Simulated scan of single mutants.
Amino acid sequence: MNPSERKPSGEDRNTSSQNFGDNPWRAMGLIGSVGGTFATCLGLGYWLGLKLDAARDTGYWSITGMAIGVVIAIIVAIFLIRTFTGGKAN
């Protein structure tokens, strides 16, 4: 058989690379993890802020808690992305 007439098959694929283009489930896992991280950090920051607002009879800790949650979520998302893409998370 002539090599130019050969049809591509799954055996010819380079499966050793950990590229997101080769595995859409891996990319979707990263997106889900980052989204879950943001939701959790924002929710937890808001909840803790509400508890501080109730304890101190103020009205600004919930916003401060959300801001702190965003900062923590960004830091954790950077670590997640580095881990998923094969970089060192330090």
Rank of each mutant, 00 (worst) to 15 (best):
P3F: 04
P3S: 01
P3K: 15
S4C: 06
S4V: 10
E5K: 14
R6A: 14
K7N: 15
K7D: 09
S9D: 10
G10A: 08
E11I: 11
E11V: 15
D12N: 05
D12Q: 02
D12F: 02
R13W: 00
R13F: 04
N14T: 05
T15L: 08
T15W: 11
S17G: 03
S17H: 11
S17V: 12
Q18L: 06
N19K: 15
F20I: 10
F20G: 12
G21K: 14
G21Q: 15
G21R: 13
G21V: 14
D22E: 05
D22S: 15
D22N: 15
N23L: 04
N23F: 13
N23R: 14
N23T: 03
N23A: 05
N23E: 05
W25T: 11
W25Q: 15
W25D: 12
W25V: 09
R26S: 10
R26D: 06
L30T: 09
L30H: 01
L30Q: 01
I31N: 07
G32V: 11
G32F: 05
V34M: 04
V34C: 08
V34G: 01
G35S: 12
T37H: 14
T37P: 12
F38C: 12
A39E: 05
T40E: 09
T40P: 09
C41T: 15
C41Q: 09
G43K: 11
G43C: 03
L44A: 15
G45V: 03
Y46E: 08
W47F: 09
L48D: 02
G49Y: 00
K51H: 09
K51G: 04
L52A: 13
A55P: 00
A55H: 13
D57T: 06
T58W: 02
G59A: 07
Y60E: 06
Y60H: 14
Y60L: 12
S62D: 02
S62I: 04
S62M: 12
I63Q: 06
T64C: 11
T64M: 10
G65R: 01
G65S: 08
M66D: 02
M66S: 09
M66H: 08
M66P: 05
A67H: 02
A67C: 04
I68A: 06
G69M: 06
G69S: 11
V70W: 03
V70Y: 03
V71P: 00
I72R: 07
I72T: 03
A73V: 02
I74F: 13
I75Y: 13
I75N: 01
I75G: 02
A77K: 01
I78T: 11
F79V: 11
L80S: 06
I81L: 14
I81Y: 07
I81D: 08
R82H: 08
R82E: 02
T83L: 11
T85W: 05
T85A: 04
G86D: 01
G86V: 01
G87R: 12
N90C: 09
